[in-house]
Each structure stands twice: as C-alpha cells, then as structure tokens.
Design a binder for these strands. Structure first.
Lengths: 208, 208
DNA sequence: ACTGTTAGGATACGACTGTATCCATACAAG
DNA sequence: CTTGTATGGATACAGTCGTATCCTAACAGT
C-alpha cells in the first residue's frame, strides 16, 4: 500500500471548513471550491474525500447534530449533583440557546440547514426528523416531577415541554438576529421556569 | 407617448412570481430567468421593470411585510366587538402562525428571508428591523390590562409579550417543518393564554 | 529495482448565473 | 405619414457552479 492518509481526519477538516462558511456567509455561499480554499487544499482533494456535494452537506448536518448533542450532555454533566428536574431543563434549554461565539455560529448553521430543508427534499429527510427524542425525554421527566408533587397538578407536561422547546427556538432566532442578547433570552427562560416550578427551587427575596 | 403599461401592476406580478418560487423552492432557487418563467414573461421584462436582482428581493420582502400586516389587521377586525386584551393576543398570535395554505407559503418565504438576512448584509438592514412595534404595542396593552386587574400582579408584561412572540415564532418553525399541525400549535398558544389571563375568560371545570 | 495503488495537481466540460447590448415593434404627438 | 419614445424579444458576456478526466508523484509489497 502506498502513502496512507487518515480519511476520517481529512473529512473532519473539510466538514469543519464547510460549517465555517455556512455559519458566516450562509449555506448558499458553500461551494466545493470555497470549501477547498477555506480548508487550504485543492478542489481535487474535496472531490477525492467526498463523492458528492450532497455527501458534504450531509456530513455537515451530522456534525452539527453531534455538536448539539455534545453540548447538551456537557451541560448536564456540569450540573454537578443538582439533578433536580429544573436543573435538567436549565441544562437542555441553555444548550439550545446560543451562548458563546462558537454556539452562535453553530446555531446559525443549524438555522440555515433547517430553512433549506423546508424547501429541499434532499435535506428534509435528514434535518426534519419527526420523532423528537429530546421532547419525549423531557416530558417523562416532567411527568415524574408532577407525580412527586414538584409541579402543580393543573399543568400539562406535554404541552409545557413543547412550549419551552418552541420558546427556546424562537428566542434563538431573535438572538441570532441580534434583536435580543443572550442574557435577555436566558432571563425569559428563567422567568418561565420560575413560574413552572413555583417558588420552591431557587433563592429569592423573602415572601412578603 | 407610445403604449403605456402599468408599471406598478407589472412589478406586483413579478414580485408575486418571486415569492411563489421562494416559498416553494427556496430563496436560492430564485433567479431572474426563473421569475420570468414563473410570471410567463421574458427575461428582458424582468430586467426592464427591476434594475437589480437586489431590487427584486427588496420588493419581495416589502410585499411579505405588507401581507403580514394585512393579516394582523384582518384578524383584529374579525374580533368583532370582543376587544378584550385576550382577543387581541389571540388575533396577533393567530396571524403569526401559519393557518391556511397561503399563510404557510408566506411564512416559508419569510423564514427564508430571515435566515438569508442573518448572513447577508444586503438583506440584514431590511429584514432584521430592531424597533419591534408589535412587541411595544402588546406590552402597553398588557400593562393596561394588569392595571385594570385583568392580569395577576406578579406577571411581567414585557417578559410575557416577548415570550409569547418568541413562542409563536418557534411554533411556526415547527409547523413549517411539519413536526406539528397548525391545530397543535394553536392549542399550545391557547394553553398559555389561559394561564396568563387566569380562570376569568373561558369555561372550565369548577375549581376544587 | 520494479510495480501497482493511493493521493492529489491541472484542466476542461456543460449548465447556469446576473447583467449588458442590439434591435424590432407599437403607438401617441406632430 | 412621419417621428420619437416606451416596450420587450434575442443574444452575448464573463463568472461560477458541480462534476469528470488526465496525469503525476509518492510509496508499500514483491
């Protein structure tokens, strides 16, 4: 065998170059040649490691999903000890909202993919996955909390979870559009979590 | 003067052709020639009535904004007599959510514009308008309702309005992605309006 | 040393893009 | 009837796109 190159590593570099372009200049600015330039390689290399442009785009989408997953688990792990239902929701919703510059870029790329998928059947299958595992997980978590008495009985866990996720997505859009700061978005989330879980959890001024 | 043509009417037809393409095949599928074909005219006609492609895109964005405005006012007018604060919120939020096929298409086009504006400076100025008149209007409306005792005193009107608008946007995204039906989205909105305005408005099981 | 495969440079193809130009027609004013 | 302008058909231009092809260099196995 002649000179062997780490294909996975090469593909990773190219995928990251793709996402860098998509998040800063948009998905329509992504071309084979632009990716090559961004990664510092020739067009032929991009062609060599990816059969299609579609394969490239699929790889970018998979990487984005992996990053979001990583971020959620990282936040969940950072909630040391405090495994309260509220902290779980804070972790998940906080992971969705763009916080630092990197997560902002990822959110931009994700939004670009989602929007493209709305009118592009080739992306729709991969980007608009129907069975939302996250929503189911949070719903069972919230239902359990309700049975334990940590949530008012007149709340509907399914609806609350769906609304919180949609709220986080809507806030994300406004943060990306610089109509709202990350802090303002977080404050709105916290406001709703306060109302949801009642005056039990966090510290607050003494009740008058 | 030779044969005179209604320029405004021509421009309107071309703009509608543009939006038809943008909402069904995406903004990246919009080209001068595609618009011409969609409108049933030659490329020269598109060039003749719009100096630029940018001017065409600007016109499409303006038309979308006008349509949303029209829809809100139409819903507000349909709320005959019942000028309760809640009905105002129902009208506005119901106008944001895609209901029929046409509003779905408009929402798709709007989302495409918004996403494009996030990375395209030429669109950012027009599409990401900072002073949100709608948010201010609803906030003052809700503040007034609170002073009248129609809203619990521990609610923050600014935050509630911001959250409801972000929620409507997030739900819109999920409806466009066919992850949720229009009815399911409306139910979530109603659920929150019920909680916001308390047990006053709608019928419900007797309090235990 | 030779050979066969892997890795990539260089270039080309046809399609499509926004824009520009040239020219023909239609029609109101004189 | 002539003329000038508004309208629009036809075509061209220079880029960029995804993809394909040709060819060379590097290197492991024999």
């Amino acid at each position: 065998m002649p000179r062997q190159v780490d294909h996975d590593e090469r593909r990773r570099q190219l995928t990251e170059a793709l996402l860098r372009i998509a998040s800063t200049r948009g998905l329509q600015a992504v071309s084979m040649r632009e990716i090559a330039a961004e990664a510092g390689v020739s067009l032929r290399v991009v062609q060599y490691y990816f059969t299609d442009k579609q394969a490239l785009l699929d790889s970018g989408l998979a990487e984005l999903a992996a990053r979001l997953d990583r971020r959620v688990k990282q936040r969940a792990a950072a909630a040391t000890g405090g495994l309260s239902t509220r902290s779980v929701f804070e972790a998940v919703l906080g992971a969705i909202l763009p916080s630092d510059e990197q997560s902002r870029l990822d959110s931009l790329a994700w939004t670009a993919y989602y929007t493209a998928a709305l009118t592009d059947p080739a992306l729709a299958a991969a980007a608009l996955t129907r069975p939302d595992a996250l929503e189911d997980f949070l719903t069972t978590r919230l239902t359990t909390a309700q049975q334990a008495g940590d949530l008012a009985s007149d709340r509907d866990p399914r609806t609350e979870v769906a609304a919180l996720l949609a709220l986080a997505n809507g806030l994300t859009a406004s943060v990306l559009g610089r109509q709202r700061s990350h802090e303002a978005a977080t404050a709105i989330i916290d406001y709703h979590l306060d109302r949801l879980f009642g005056p039990t959890a966090t510290l607050r001024p003494p009740p008058d």
